[in-house]
Amino acid sequence: MRDNKFLRPVGLIAGALLLGACTVLPTVPSVMVLPGTGQSLESFRADDAYCREYAFVLNGGKTADQAARQSAVTSAAVGTAVGAAAGAAIGGNAQGAAVGAGAGLLMGSAVGTDTARSSAYGTQRQYDNAYIQCMYSKGHRVPVPGNVSYSKPVKAADVGIPPPPPGSPPPPPPR
């Protein structure tokens, strides 16, 4: 009976951690792409559908949400197994294994939350990159952030590189 009193709170805490790790992630591109110059909206929509499928397949056929869930469950399962083994080794009985499994589940779930977030972010980023490449190759425009100007060449003095000291030897001749 004592085991049941201990495992119930552990299960509730682990469940709360797992639910806390659940987030709603986009299953569509999270970047903006505009129709190419002179291209119709119908052409853009057809290319958009094709490039979404292309990015999905290139990403292994899984969404960012699926990658996050898989990562969280894997971390919790590994933590539970390691905790049970450690608990059995330390306690030497079934009660020690149960306590270790509960502690492992808690730690695995906590670690799983961060790995799930990281996995989801990476998967979404790969999807977005593949989508952008596909849409760009179809002739559509991809806005770039920031103040990027390529109108004049960059000089060493513009980026803070000091000139060589006076009297220094000339550079070696080209080969």
Rank of each mutant, 00 (worst) to 15 (best):
M1E: 02
M1H: 03
R2I: 03
N4I: 15
N4H: 15
N4K: 14
L7R: 01
L7E: 02
P9F: 15
P9Y: 13
G11A: 05
A14T: 10
G15I: 06
G15W: 10
L18S: 08
L19K: 08
G20P: 01
G20H: 00
G20T: 00
C22W: 05
T27I: 05
T27M: 08
V28G: 03
M32P: 03
V33N: 08
L34T: 14
L34C: 12
P35H: 10
G38Y: 15
S40Y: 06
L41P: 04
E42C: 01
A46M: 12
D48Y: 10
C51R: 11
Y54Q: 12
A55N: 03
A55W: 07
V57I: 09
N59I: 07
N59Q: 10
N59A: 12
G60M: 07
G60V: 07
G61K: 06
T63I: 13
D65Q: 15
D65H: 13
D65K: 13
Q66V: 15
A67W: 00
A68L: 08
S71M: 12
S71I: 09
V73T: 06
T74E: 06
T74W: 06
S75L: 04
A76G: 10
A76S: 10
V78H: 07
V82G: 01
V82L: 02
G83C: 01
A85N: 08
A86K: 00
A86S: 01
G87M: 02
G91R: 12
G92R: 01
N93Y: 11
N93T: 15
N93H: 13
G96K: 04
A98Y: 01
G100P: 02
G100A: 00
A101D: 00
G104E: 04
L105M: 10
M107Y: 12
G108D: 03
S109R: 12
A110R: 01
T113P: 10
D114T: 14
D114R: 14
D114L: 12
T115K: 11
T115F: 11
A116E: 00
R117L: 08
R117W: 05
S119Q: 07
S119W: 03
T123H: 09
T123D: 05
Q126M: 13
Q126I: 10
Q126F: 13
Y127A: 03
Y127I: 02
A130I: 01
M135Q: 12
G139V: 03
G139W: 03
H140V: 06
V142I: 15
G146R: 03
N147C: 04
V148P: 00
S149L: 05
Y150H: 06
K152W: 11
K152H: 11
P153N: 09
A156Y: 07
D158W: 08
V159G: 07
P163H: 01
P165C: 10
G167W: 14
G167A: 13
P170M: 10
P172W: 14
P172L: 14
P173R: 06
P173K: 02
P173L: 04
P174D: 13
R175M: 13
R175W: 14
